[in-house]
Design a protein around this nucleic acid. Sequence first.
RNA 1: UCCGGUAUAGCUCAGUUGGUUAGAGCAGCGGACUGUUAAUCCGCGUGUCCGUGGUUCGAGUCCACGUACCGGAGCCA
Length: 430
Amino acid sequence: MTVARINRISEFEGKTVQLNGWVYNSRRSGKIGFLMFRDGFGIMQCIVAKNDVGEEAFEVFKSLTQESSLSVVGEVVKNDRAPGGFEMVVSELMVHQLSSEYPITPKEHGTDFLMNHRHLWLRSKRQHAILKVRHEIIKAVRDFFDSNDFTLCDSPIFTPNAAEGTSTLFGTDYFGNTAFLAQTGQLYGEAAAMAVGRHYNFGPTFRAEKSKTRRHLTEFWMVEPEIAYCEIDENMNWAERLILFIIERVLENRKNELDVLERDLGKLEHIKAPFPRLSYTECVELLNKGGINFTWGDDFGAPEETFIGEQFNQPVMVHRFPTAIKAFYMKRDPENEKVVLGMDVLAPEGFGEIIGGSERETEINLLEDRIKDEELNQADYEWFLDLRRYGSVPHSGFGMGIERVVAWICNLPHVRETIPFPRTIGRLNP
RNA sequence: UCCGGUAUAGCUCAGUUGGUUAGAGCAGCGGACUGUUAAUCCGCGUGUCCGUGGUUCGAGUCCACGUACCGGAGCCA
Protein backbone atom coordinates (compact mmCIF):
# COMPACT_ATOMS: atom_id res chain seq x y z
CA MET A 1 0.00 0.00 0.00
CA THR A 2 1.33 3.45 -0.98
CA VAL A 3 1.86 5.72 2.00
CA ALA A 4 0.94 9.28 1.10
CA ARG A 5 1.75 12.55 2.83
CA ILE A 6 -0.92 15.18 3.25
CA ASN A 7 1.21 18.05 1.93
CA ARG A 8 1.34 16.22 -1.44
CA ILE A 9 -2.13 14.74 -1.33
CA SER A 10 -3.31 16.31 -4.61
CA GLU A 11 -0.90 13.97 -6.45
CA PHE A 12 -2.98 11.03 -5.20
CA GLU A 13 -6.45 12.14 -6.33
CA GLY A 14 -8.56 9.11 -7.23
CA LYS A 15 -6.03 6.68 -5.73
CA THR A 16 -6.34 4.50 -2.65
CA VAL A 17 -3.49 5.21 -0.24
CA GLN A 18 -2.49 4.90 3.39
CA LEU A 19 -1.88 7.78 5.79
CA ASN A 20 0.08 7.39 9.03
CA GLY A 21 -0.63 9.87 11.76
CA TRP A 22 -2.74 11.04 14.66
CA VAL A 23 -6.28 12.17 15.44
CA TYR A 24 -6.43 15.98 15.41
CA ASN A 25 -10.13 16.11 16.12
CA SER A 26 -13.21 14.10 15.23
CA ARG A 27 -16.92 14.80 14.78
CA ARG A 28 -19.82 12.52 14.19
CA SER A 29 -23.23 12.87 12.71
CA GLY A 30 -25.05 9.60 13.14
CA LYS A 31 -23.59 7.02 10.83
CA ILE A 32 -21.02 9.31 9.21
CA GLY A 33 -17.82 10.42 10.95
CA PHE A 34 -15.45 13.25 10.18
CA LEU A 35 -11.90 12.56 11.26
CA MET A 36 -9.48 15.48 11.16
CA PHE A 37 -6.32 13.55 10.50
CA ARG A 38 -2.84 14.94 11.19
CA ASP A 39 0.25 13.27 9.70
CA GLY A 40 2.89 15.86 10.55
CA PHE A 41 2.87 17.20 7.00
CA GLY A 42 -0.63 18.58 7.12
CA ILE A 43 -4.18 18.04 8.28
CA MET A 44 -6.84 16.39 6.15
CA GLN A 45 -10.46 15.44 6.66
CA CYS A 46 -11.19 11.73 6.47
CA ILE A 47 -14.74 10.45 6.01
CA VAL A 48 -15.70 7.36 7.94
CA ALA A 49 -19.16 6.18 6.84
CA LYS A 50 -20.68 3.19 8.60
CA ASN A 51 -21.96 1.78 5.29
CA ASP A 52 -18.44 1.88 3.79
CA VAL A 53 -16.29 0.58 6.65
CA GLY A 54 -18.75 -1.76 8.38
CA GLU A 55 -20.09 -1.91 11.91
CA GLU A 56 -16.88 -3.08 13.59
CA ALA A 57 -14.60 -0.45 12.06
CA PHE A 58 -17.18 2.23 12.80
CA GLU A 59 -17.05 1.26 16.48
CA VAL A 60 -13.26 1.62 16.29
CA PHE A 61 -13.72 5.10 14.85
CA LYS A 62 -16.11 5.99 17.68
CA SER A 63 -13.48 4.95 20.24
CA LEU A 64 -10.82 7.29 18.82
CA THR A 65 -9.68 10.04 21.16
CA GLN A 66 -7.73 13.21 20.44
CA GLU A 67 -4.09 12.44 19.46
CA SER A 68 -4.58 8.67 19.25
CA SER A 69 -2.12 7.29 16.69
CA LEU A 70 -3.45 5.36 13.73
CA SER A 71 -3.17 4.59 10.04
CA VAL A 72 -6.05 5.00 7.64
CA VAL A 73 -6.55 3.56 4.17
CA GLY A 74 -8.95 5.08 1.67
CA GLU A 75 -9.56 6.82 -1.61
CA VAL A 76 -8.43 10.42 -2.02
CA VAL A 77 -11.20 12.54 -3.54
CA LYS A 78 -11.70 16.19 -4.34
CA ASN A 79 -14.46 17.82 -2.31
CA ASP A 80 -15.06 21.52 -1.81
CA ARG A 81 -16.76 20.87 1.51
CA ALA A 82 -13.48 19.62 2.96
CA PRO A 83 -10.96 22.09 4.38
CA GLY A 84 -8.08 22.07 1.90
CA GLY A 85 -10.24 20.78 -0.94
CA PHE A 86 -9.35 17.09 -0.60
CA GLU A 87 -10.61 14.38 1.69
CA MET A 88 -10.17 10.66 2.13
CA VAL A 89 -13.06 8.20 1.99
CA VAL A 90 -11.81 5.71 4.55
CA SER A 91 -12.09 1.96 3.99
CA GLU A 92 -9.81 0.73 6.76
CA LEU A 93 -8.60 1.94 10.19
CA MET A 94 -5.56 0.60 12.04
CA VAL A 95 -5.14 1.94 15.57
CA HIS A 96 -1.62 2.00 17.01
CA GLN A 97 -2.37 3.53 20.39
CA LEU A 98 -5.41 5.13 22.00
CA SER A 99 -4.44 8.23 23.93
CA SER A 100 -6.48 9.19 26.93
CA GLU A 101 -7.24 12.63 28.36
CA TYR A 102 -4.98 14.59 26.04
CA PRO A 103 -4.46 17.81 27.99
CA ILE A 104 -4.67 20.31 25.13
CA THR A 105 -8.26 20.57 23.93
CA PRO A 106 -9.41 22.51 20.86
CA LYS A 107 -10.58 25.24 23.22
CA GLU A 108 -8.65 28.10 24.78
CA HIS A 109 -5.75 27.72 27.19
CA GLY A 110 -3.44 30.06 29.06
CA THR A 111 0.19 30.66 28.16
CA ASP A 112 1.64 29.01 31.24
CA PHE A 113 -0.45 25.87 30.79
CA LEU A 114 0.53 25.62 27.14
CA MET A 115 4.21 26.21 27.88
CA ASN A 116 4.13 23.47 30.52
CA HIS A 117 2.83 21.20 27.74
CA ARG A 118 5.12 22.60 25.07
CA HIS A 119 6.11 19.06 23.98
CA LEU A 120 2.47 18.45 23.02
CA TRP A 121 1.56 22.01 22.04
CA LEU A 122 3.96 21.70 19.07
CA ARG A 123 1.38 19.43 17.42
CA SER A 124 -1.23 22.17 17.14
CA LYS A 125 -1.90 23.89 13.84
CA ARG A 126 -0.49 27.26 14.85
CA GLN A 127 2.69 25.91 16.38
CA HIS A 128 3.17 23.61 13.40
CA ALA A 129 2.94 26.63 11.09
CA ILE A 130 5.51 28.52 13.15
CA LEU A 131 7.92 25.57 13.06
CA LYS A 132 7.61 25.43 9.28
CA VAL A 133 8.23 29.16 8.87
CA ARG A 134 11.20 29.00 11.23
CA HIS A 135 12.66 26.20 9.15
CA GLU A 136 12.08 28.14 5.94
CA ILE A 137 13.85 31.19 7.39
CA ILE A 138 16.86 29.16 8.51
CA LYS A 139 17.06 27.44 5.14
CA ALA A 140 16.84 30.80 3.36
CA VAL A 141 19.65 32.19 5.52
CA ARG A 142 21.91 29.27 4.71
CA ASP A 143 21.04 29.28 1.02
CA PHE A 144 21.70 33.01 0.84
CA PHE A 145 25.19 32.77 2.27
CA ASP A 146 26.06 29.49 0.54
CA SER A 147 25.15 30.93 -2.85
CA ASN A 148 27.31 34.01 -2.22
CA ASP A 149 30.54 32.08 -1.58
CA PHE A 150 30.37 32.28 2.21
CA THR A 151 31.89 29.38 4.12
CA LEU A 152 30.25 28.08 7.28
CA CYS A 153 32.76 27.70 10.13
CA ASP A 154 31.29 26.66 13.44
CA SER A 155 32.45 28.52 16.52
CA PRO A 156 32.81 26.87 19.92
CA ILE A 157 30.06 26.91 22.54
CA PHE A 158 32.49 26.58 25.48
CA THR A 159 34.59 29.71 25.61
CA PRO A 160 37.14 31.07 28.06
CA ASN A 161 36.35 34.73 27.50
CA ALA A 162 33.64 37.31 27.22
CA ALA A 163 33.01 39.17 24.00
CA GLU A 164 30.58 41.71 25.36
CA GLY A 165 31.01 42.00 29.12
CA THR A 166 30.92 39.31 31.78
CA SER A 167 27.69 40.02 33.60
CA THR A 168 25.54 38.16 31.10
CA LEU A 169 27.53 34.93 30.83
CA PHE A 170 26.55 31.47 31.97
CA GLY A 171 29.51 29.82 33.66
CA THR A 172 29.96 26.05 33.79
CA ASP A 173 32.54 23.85 35.46
CA TYR A 174 35.17 22.78 32.98
CA PHE A 175 37.47 20.27 34.71
CA GLY A 176 38.04 22.63 37.58
CA ASN A 177 38.11 25.80 35.50
CA THR A 178 35.19 27.97 34.43
CA ALA A 179 34.03 27.83 30.86
CA PHE A 180 31.39 30.23 29.62
CA LEU A 181 28.64 29.40 27.18
CA ALA A 182 29.15 31.50 24.07
CA GLN A 183 27.13 34.70 23.92
CA THR A 184 28.33 35.26 20.36
CA GLY A 185 30.55 33.51 17.85
CA GLN A 186 31.80 36.78 16.50
CA LEU A 187 35.45 36.83 17.64
CA TYR A 188 35.93 33.36 16.17
CA GLY A 189 34.09 34.56 13.10
CA GLU A 190 36.72 37.23 12.58
CA ALA A 191 39.42 34.55 12.66
CA ALA A 192 37.45 32.49 10.15
CA ALA A 193 36.90 35.46 7.81
CA MET A 194 40.67 35.95 7.62
CA ALA A 195 40.90 32.31 6.52
CA VAL A 196 38.01 32.04 4.06
CA GLY A 197 37.22 35.66 3.10
CA ARG A 198 33.47 35.40 3.53
CA HIS A 199 32.28 33.42 6.50
CA TYR A 200 29.17 32.78 8.50
CA ASN A 201 28.51 31.10 11.75
CA PHE A 202 25.14 29.74 12.84
CA GLY A 203 24.40 28.34 16.24
CA PRO A 204 22.91 28.78 19.65
CA THR A 205 24.06 31.59 21.91
CA PHE A 206 23.48 32.11 25.60
CA ARG A 207 22.88 35.23 27.62
CA ALA A 208 22.25 35.31 31.32
CA GLU A 209 20.48 38.67 31.10
CA LYS A 210 17.70 38.87 33.63
CA SER A 211 15.45 40.16 30.90
CA LYS A 212 11.78 39.42 31.15
CA THR A 213 10.39 40.81 27.94
CA ARG A 214 8.64 39.60 24.81
CA ARG A 215 11.94 39.84 22.94
CA HIS A 216 14.38 37.91 25.14
CA LEU A 217 15.43 34.33 25.54
CA THR A 218 18.43 33.06 27.50
CA GLU A 219 19.20 30.61 24.69
CA PHE A 220 18.67 31.79 21.12
CA TRP A 221 19.97 31.12 17.64
CA MET A 222 22.03 33.63 15.78
CA VAL A 223 23.53 33.78 12.33
CA GLU A 224 26.72 35.81 12.12
CA PRO A 225 28.39 36.59 8.80
CA GLU A 226 31.87 38.10 8.86
CA ILE A 227 33.45 39.50 5.72
CA ALA A 228 37.07 40.45 5.00
CA TYR A 229 37.76 43.63 3.02
CA CYS A 230 34.29 44.95 3.82
CA GLU A 231 33.41 48.39 5.20
CA ILE A 232 30.27 49.51 6.97
CA ASP A 233 28.22 50.49 3.90
CA GLU A 234 28.82 47.15 2.22
CA ASN A 235 27.99 45.46 5.52
CA MET A 236 24.61 47.18 5.47
CA ASN A 237 24.13 46.05 1.86
CA TRP A 238 24.61 42.44 2.95
CA ALA A 239 22.10 42.80 5.78
CA GLU A 240 19.59 44.36 3.40
CA ARG A 241 19.99 41.66 0.79
CA LEU A 242 19.70 38.92 3.40
CA ILE A 243 16.40 40.26 4.75
CA LEU A 244 14.94 40.67 1.27
CA PHE A 245 15.96 37.13 0.39
CA ILE A 246 14.33 35.69 3.52
CA ILE A 247 11.06 37.51 2.87
CA GLU A 248 11.02 36.44 -0.76
CA ARG A 249 11.53 32.78 0.20
CA VAL A 250 8.89 32.76 2.92
CA LEU A 251 6.34 34.42 0.64
CA GLU A 252 7.18 31.92 -2.07
CA ASN A 253 6.99 28.76 0.04
CA ARG A 254 5.05 29.39 3.26
CA LYS A 255 1.94 31.36 2.34
CA ASN A 256 -0.30 28.62 3.74
CA GLU A 257 1.45 28.73 7.08
CA LEU A 258 1.27 32.54 7.19
CA ASP A 259 -2.47 32.22 6.48
CA VAL A 260 -2.86 29.89 9.46
CA LEU A 261 -1.08 32.54 11.52
CA GLU A 262 -3.37 35.23 10.04
CA ARG A 263 -0.33 37.23 8.97
CA ASP A 264 -1.04 40.35 6.91
CA LEU A 265 0.98 39.47 3.80
CA GLY A 266 0.72 42.98 2.39
CA LYS A 267 3.05 44.27 5.10
CA LEU A 268 5.72 41.76 4.02
CA GLU A 269 5.17 42.13 0.27
CA HIS A 270 5.64 45.87 0.74
CA ILE A 271 9.23 45.46 1.99
CA LYS A 272 11.74 46.60 -0.63
CA ALA A 273 15.20 48.07 -1.00
CA PRO A 274 16.72 50.43 -0.31
CA PHE A 275 15.97 50.43 3.41
CA PRO A 276 16.21 53.85 5.04
CA ARG A 277 19.68 54.42 6.56
CA LEU A 278 19.93 56.91 9.40
CA SER A 279 22.79 57.76 11.69
CA TYR A 280 22.18 57.53 15.41
CA THR A 281 22.43 61.32 15.54
CA GLU A 282 19.73 61.68 12.87
CA CYS A 283 17.53 59.29 14.87
CA VAL A 284 17.92 61.41 17.98
CA GLU A 285 16.75 64.44 15.98
CA LEU A 286 13.83 62.43 14.60
CA LEU A 287 12.81 61.33 18.10
CA ASN A 288 12.99 64.84 19.51
CA LYS A 289 10.98 66.23 16.58
CA GLY A 290 8.41 63.50 17.20
CA GLY A 291 7.99 64.68 20.78
CA ILE A 292 10.04 61.91 22.43
CA ASN A 293 12.54 63.28 24.89
CA PHE A 294 15.86 61.59 24.21
CA THR A 295 19.43 62.58 25.05
CA TRP A 296 22.36 61.96 22.69
CA GLY A 297 24.49 59.23 24.25
CA ASP A 298 21.71 57.05 25.64
CA ASP A 299 20.86 53.69 24.14
CA PHE A 300 17.53 53.23 22.39
CA GLY A 301 14.87 51.39 24.34
CA ALA A 302 11.86 49.56 22.97
CA PRO A 303 9.69 52.71 22.66
CA GLU A 304 12.40 54.54 20.67
CA GLU A 305 12.96 51.58 18.35
CA THR A 306 9.23 51.26 17.77
CA PHE A 307 8.88 54.96 17.01
CA ILE A 308 11.74 54.94 14.48
CA GLY A 309 10.36 51.82 12.82
CA GLU A 310 6.88 53.33 12.54
CA GLN A 311 8.15 56.33 10.55
CA PHE A 312 9.04 54.18 7.56
CA ASN A 313 7.08 50.87 7.41
CA GLN A 314 10.35 49.33 6.20
CA PRO A 315 13.27 47.85 8.07
CA VAL A 316 15.41 50.80 9.19
CA MET A 317 19.20 50.72 9.38
CA VAL A 318 20.66 52.84 12.13
CA HIS A 319 24.42 53.43 12.13
CA ARG A 320 27.25 55.30 13.92
CA PHE A 321 26.37 54.88 17.59
CA PRO A 322 28.07 56.56 20.56
CA THR A 323 31.27 54.69 21.38
CA ALA A 324 30.36 54.29 25.03
CA ILE A 325 27.26 52.15 24.45
CA LYS A 326 28.83 49.68 22.01
CA ALA A 327 31.23 46.72 22.23
CA PHE A 328 35.01 47.14 22.30
CA TYR A 329 35.66 45.59 18.87
CA MET A 330 33.69 48.17 16.86
CA LYS A 331 35.77 50.54 14.69
CA ARG A 332 35.78 54.22 15.57
CA ASP A 333 34.51 56.49 12.85
CA PRO A 334 37.61 58.19 11.40
CA GLU A 335 35.49 61.31 10.84
CA ASN A 336 34.11 61.49 14.38
CA GLU A 337 35.77 59.62 17.21
CA LYS A 338 32.71 59.93 19.48
CA VAL A 339 30.92 57.33 17.39
CA VAL A 340 31.68 53.80 16.19
CA LEU A 341 30.83 52.25 12.83
CA GLY A 342 28.13 50.04 14.28
CA MET A 343 24.81 49.38 12.61
CA ASP A 344 21.50 47.97 13.78
CA VAL A 345 18.51 46.92 11.71
CA LEU A 346 15.12 47.66 13.24
CA ALA A 347 12.20 45.62 11.96
CA PRO A 348 8.92 47.39 11.19
CA GLU A 349 5.63 47.02 13.10
CA GLY A 350 7.35 47.55 16.43
CA PHE A 351 9.43 44.37 16.33
CA GLY A 352 12.61 46.29 17.08
CA GLU A 353 16.20 45.26 16.64
CA ILE A 354 16.77 42.10 14.61
CA ILE A 355 20.36 42.72 13.51
CA GLY A 356 23.34 44.27 15.23
CA GLY A 357 26.72 44.60 13.55
CA SER A 358 29.67 46.80 12.74
CA GLU A 359 32.84 47.41 10.91
CA ARG A 360 35.55 46.05 13.21
CA GLU A 361 38.46 47.91 14.71
CA THR A 362 41.68 47.13 12.85
CA GLU A 363 44.22 49.04 14.98
CA ILE A 364 45.73 46.88 17.68
CA ASN A 365 46.50 49.83 20.02
CA LEU A 366 42.91 51.02 19.97
CA LEU A 367 41.67 47.51 20.70
CA GLU A 368 44.08 47.14 23.61
CA ASP A 369 42.84 50.46 25.04
CA ARG A 370 39.23 49.41 24.75
CA ILE A 371 39.94 46.05 26.39
CA LYS A 372 41.49 47.93 29.32
CA ASP A 373 38.59 50.38 29.49
CA GLU A 374 36.09 47.54 29.69
CA GLU A 375 38.21 45.82 32.37
CA LEU A 376 38.53 42.66 30.31
CA ASN A 377 41.48 40.31 30.75
CA GLN A 378 43.81 40.96 27.83
CA ALA A 379 45.45 37.55 28.11
CA ASP A 380 42.14 35.98 27.04
CA TYR A 381 42.21 38.08 23.88
CA GLU A 382 45.79 37.57 22.72
CA TRP A 383 44.69 35.15 20.02
CA PHE A 384 42.13 37.69 18.84
CA LEU A 385 44.77 40.44 18.78
CA ASP A 386 46.90 38.16 16.59
CA LEU A 387 44.34 38.77 13.85
CA ARG A 388 45.57 42.41 13.88
CA ARG A 389 49.23 41.43 14.10
CA TYR A 390 49.20 39.17 11.07
CA GLY A 391 47.55 40.79 8.08
CA SER A 392 44.92 43.08 9.57
CA VAL A 393 42.35 44.22 7.01
CA PRO A 394 39.11 46.21 7.07
CA HIS A 395 36.33 43.77 7.84
CA SER A 396 32.75 43.82 8.99
CA GLY A 397 29.97 41.55 10.09
CA PHE A 398 26.70 41.33 11.94
CA GLY A 399 24.53 39.04 13.99
CA MET A 400 20.88 38.33 13.25
CA GLY A 401 18.65 36.82 15.91
CA ILE A 402 16.59 34.06 14.30
CA GLU A 403 13.80 34.13 16.89
CA ARG A 404 13.23 37.86 16.47
CA VAL A 405 13.05 37.45 12.71
CA VAL A 406 10.58 34.58 13.09
CA ALA A 407 8.48 36.69 15.47
CA TRP A 408 8.40 39.53 12.94
CA ILE A 409 7.66 37.38 9.87
CA CYS A 410 4.93 35.44 11.72
CA ASN A 411 3.67 38.54 13.56
CA LEU A 412 3.98 36.86 16.95
CA PRO A 413 3.75 39.02 20.04
CA HIS A 414 6.40 37.02 21.95
CA VAL A 415 9.60 35.19 20.93
CA ARG A 416 8.75 32.28 23.21
CA GLU A 417 6.60 30.74 20.44
CA THR A 418 9.31 31.08 17.79
CA ILE A 419 11.58 28.31 19.09
CA PRO A 420 10.51 24.73 19.83
CA PHE A 421 11.63 24.71 23.47
CA PRO A 422 12.17 28.24 24.73
CA ARG A 423 14.57 29.00 27.55
CA THR A 424 13.79 32.11 29.53
CA ILE A 425 14.74 33.42 32.95
CA GLY A 426 11.73 31.60 34.39
CA ARG A 427 11.64 28.44 32.31
CA LEU A 428 13.94 25.46 31.86
CA ASN A 429 11.17 22.87 31.34
CA PRO A 430 10.11 20.93 29.40
C1' U B 1 16.31 43.59 39.70
C1' C B 2 12.22 47.43 39.69
C1' C B 3 6.85 48.82 38.68
C1' G B 4 1.81 46.99 37.83
C1' G B 5 -1.66 42.85 37.62
C1' U B 6 -3.55 37.82 38.36
C1' A B 7 -4.07 33.07 41.32
C1' U B 8 -11.51 29.54 42.24
C1' A B 9 -13.28 22.29 38.78
C1' G B 10 -8.83 18.76 33.90
C1' C B 11 -9.05 23.79 30.82
C1' U B 12 -11.02 29.08 30.27
C1' C B 13 -13.45 32.00 33.61
C1' A B 14 -17.82 34.28 36.81
C1' G B 15 -18.61 34.75 42.03
C1' U B 16 -22.53 41.44 44.12
C1' U B 17 -21.87 45.73 50.31
C1' G B 18 -17.82 39.88 53.92
C1' G B 19 -23.30 35.89 55.15
C1' U B 20 -24.89 30.02 55.81
C1' U B 21 -25.31 24.54 50.28
C1' A B 22 -19.10 28.13 45.44
C1' G B 23 -21.27 28.53 39.65
C1' A B 24 -21.04 28.55 33.94
C1' G B 25 -18.94 27.10 29.32
C1' C B 26 -15.62 23.61 27.35
C1' A B 27 -13.21 18.88 27.94
C1' G B 28 -14.63 13.64 29.76
C1' C B 29 -18.61 9.61 29.99
C1' G B 30 -23.65 7.73 28.00
C1' G B 31 -27.45 8.58 24.19
C1' A B 32 -29.76 10.91 19.20
C1' C B 33 -28.41 12.42 14.25
C1' U B 34 -25.21 10.32 6.80
C1' G B 35 -21.84 16.46 5.30
C1' U B 36 -19.64 18.12 10.07
C1' U B 37 -16.08 22.73 9.92
C1' A B 38 -13.93 24.75 17.67
C1' A B 39 -20.97 20.63 14.76
C1' U B 40 -25.71 20.50 17.34
C1' C B 41 -29.36 18.43 20.95
C1' C B 42 -30.51 15.41 25.72
C1' G B 43 -28.49 13.25 30.34
C1' C B 44 -24.29 12.43 34.06
C1' G B 45 -19.62 15.04 37.71
C1' U B 46 -15.96 17.53 39.64
C1' G B 47 -13.17 21.78 44.29
C1' U B 48 -6.53 22.02 49.51
C1' C B 49 -11.08 28.82 46.33
C1' C B 50 -2.11 29.24 45.57
C1' G B 51 0.42 28.94 50.82
C1' U B 52 1.02 30.92 55.83
C1' G B 53 -0.61 34.25 59.35
C1' G B 54 -4.12 38.16 60.72
C1' U B 55 -8.94 41.21 61.17
C1' U B 56 -14.11 39.49 62.06
C1' C B 57 -19.68 36.33 65.17
C1' G B 58 -18.51 34.82 60.06
C1' A B 59 -13.31 35.31 54.76
C1' G B 60 -13.23 32.67 47.94
C1' U B 61 -14.20 38.03 49.13
C1' C B 62 -10.58 42.52 53.58
C1' C B 63 -5.06 43.06 55.40
C1' A B 64 0.33 41.36 55.68
C1' C B 65 4.14 38.24 54.08
C1' G B 66 5.61 34.34 50.76
C1' U B 67 5.28 31.62 46.07
C1' A B 68 3.97 31.08 40.92
C1' C B 69 2.52 33.22 36.55
C1' C B 70 1.21 37.46 33.19
C1' G B 71 2.33 42.55 31.33
C1' G B 72 5.91 46.55 31.28
C1' A B 73 11.02 48.78 32.26
C1' G B 74 16.40 48.32 32.12
C1' C B 75 19.89 45.31 28.97
C1' C B 76 20.26 43.15 24.29
C1' A B 77 19.84 39.76 18.92
